[in-house]
Nucleic acid binder design. Structure first.
Length: 479
RNA sequence: GGCGCAUUCGUCUAGGGGUUUAGGACGCUGCCCUCUCAAGGCAGAGAUCACCGGUUCGAAUCCGGUAUGCGCUACCA
């Protein structure tokens, strides 16, 4: 019988979660779902100074956007301060921790000196051996202490990591870290251990940056007489400069990707592949496939650089896989937002549905859709006559336009096929290649040199608008 | 400075002693398709598997050292 899997995502509420946080959440969620376990959301709001109002809501929205549903929580550490205090006191009582009255100023000076002497910085254990009387008198003076853990001076602590194996730390390199701050809040180390224990967390999946503090956690578990969970330290996600992803890098927050028109399912697929792989070739996988196959054994040990270009490609794959209806629906908010202000809102959704199939395979993100479709909406096309002529001369352009207008005018049905049937012969007669010939019409109708297929575009645009645009182009040359 | 982790094409990765002339993907280049742009198809360039030693009949794969990168080194998480 193995322990039931219970994992948690435990961000601190400091703003939009960035890609690294989200990847951690994702792996925890995948691990829980694969093992029919429980995924818990816990908010680590023990740093009053860094706490940002509304951040919890933002975190929850981000998880929801990606479809990472949690089974318990959100649990707030700030609601459980008494619990942490209780264990801090207990540890002091048992001689496993002590009160420290050193001022921030003293600590600062101490650190500077250590740095200057090229010594490893760390608390010098000044208060470690205060007598009970000394503590009492400092207390009555009104001094507010922190509680520090009494790290063993010698011996080793072994961390067993599911991804990295056994990692051995010399206890002499561990300092007496703070458990309870002077404002009564616990540090991460204390709160984390107490909560993981109380919530019966079975596996701690977190970023590699935590590996160095894990021996402290192991020591704490043992001091409290608790069984530690299993640890798995996930490889970090790096910026293009190979340093830890942070605000210095562009677009690190998850909401930026939402705003840029990335699909959550593409995001999930892509992030899954940052540090995990199924085999030597499978890349596009449904959520179900990923859940079915996810395992810690296949998590890589090496940090991964976040590569937007590949995300773009994958997002394009997902966009093309959408059914047209869905694509139109998901594009709508981006179109509403991205079309020039002069165009009437709300945007005609039936019209957009007709346009959608013409641009779906041309968009890599939903945010690109407005630029792809705007000529369907604007009243007056902006382009210069040079563009209209392309490599042809004025006479040729005039002839192409007038012949096309005459031909289309006689057409009964304004449909892609009949238009093409009627216009194609003109190309042959002109002695030109189809490219340049259609190029003139394309610019006349769309105002650009690259567009969806011409006749399909004209069909959707409608007879009236198409003819009007062709006429407008012709009148540039004949006034 | 100390401690820890890591090191396979530019990037994400497969590989876990012989099946490897190191596979796939993104990106890049070329060709095909083609009314343009995409999409799609095909092809190509791109990795002395960080380096040096060792183990072994045989090493990208195991061991040691070195180098480099990154992380931690707070009353932040």
């Amino acid at each position: 019988m193995s322990v039931p899997v219970r994992v948690r995502f435990a961000p601190s509420p400091t703003g939009y979660p960035h890609l690294g946080n989200i990847r951690t959440a994702l792996f925890n969620w995948l691990f829980a779902r694969h093992n029919n376990g429980v995924f818990i959301l816990r908010i680590e709001d023990t740093d009053v100074a860094r706490k940002v109002e509304g951040a919890t809501e933002i975190i929850m929205e981000s998880l929801q956007w990606l479809g990472l549903d949690w089974d318990e929580g959100p649990v707030f550490q700030s609601d459980r301060l008494d619990l942490y205090k209780m264990y801090a006191r207990e540890l002091v009582k048992e001689g496993r921790a002590y009160y420290c009255f050193c001022s921030p100023e003293r600590l600062e000076v101490m650190r500077k000196e250590q740095m200057m002497r090229k010594q490893p910085p760390g608390y010098d254990r000044h208060c470690r051996d205060l007598t009970e009387q000394q503590v009492d008198s400092l207390m009555t003076e009104g001094k507010v202490p922190v509680v520090r853990f009494k790290s063993p001076l010698k011996g080793q602590t072994v961390v067993t990591d599911l991804i990295r194996g056994e990692v051995v730390f010399e206890n002499s390199t561990l300092d007496d870290f703070v458990l309870l701050k002077s404002d009564g809040y616990p540090t991460y180390h204390l709160a984390n251990i107490v909560d993981d224990h109380y919530m019966n967390i079975s596996h701690v999946l977190r970023a590699e940056e935590w590996l160095s503090s894990t021996p402290r956690h192991v020591l704490l578990y043992s001091a409290l007489g608790w069984q530690p969970p299993q640890f798995a330290h996930l490889p970090m996600i790096l910026g293009p400069d190979k340093s830890k992803l942070s605000k210095r890098h562009s677009a690190t927050a998850i909401n930026e990707y939402q705003n840029q028109g990335y699909l959550p399912e593409a995001m999930v697929n892509f992030l899954t592949l940052l540090g995990w792989s199924l085999d030597d070739k499978t890349e596009i996988m449904s959520r179900e496939e990923i859940i079915k196959n996810f395992s810690i054994e296949r998590v890589s040990r090496t940090a991964a650089v976040f590569n937007v270009a590949k995300l773009e490609w994958m997002n394009g794959m997902y966009i093309r896989a959408l059914n047209v209806e869905d694509f139109a629906k998901r594009s709508l908010p981006f179109v509403e937002q991205g079309l020039p202000p002069g165009i009437k809102r709300p945007v005609d959704t039936d019209y957009l549905r007709l346009i959608a199939p013409l641009v779906q395979e041309r968009a890599r993100t939903l945010a690109e859709v407005p630029q792809l479709v705007d000529f369907f909406f604007v009243n007056e096309l902006q382009y210069d006559s040079e563009m209209l002529m392309g490599k042809l001369d004025k006479g040729q352009a005039v002839s192409i336009l007038s012949q096309t207008i005459d031909t289309l005018k006689k057409l009964d049905a304004w449909e892609t096929e009949s238009m093409e049937e009627a216009v194609r012969p003109l190309v042959a007669e002109s002695g030109l290649k189809a490219g340049p010939f259609f190029g003139v019409i394309r610019v006349a109708v769309t105002g650009r040199t690259a567009s969806p297929p011409l006749f399909q575009t004209m069909e959707v645009l409608g007879r009236e608008r198409s003819m009007q645009r062709l006429g407008a182009a012709l009148s540039r040359f004949i006034s």
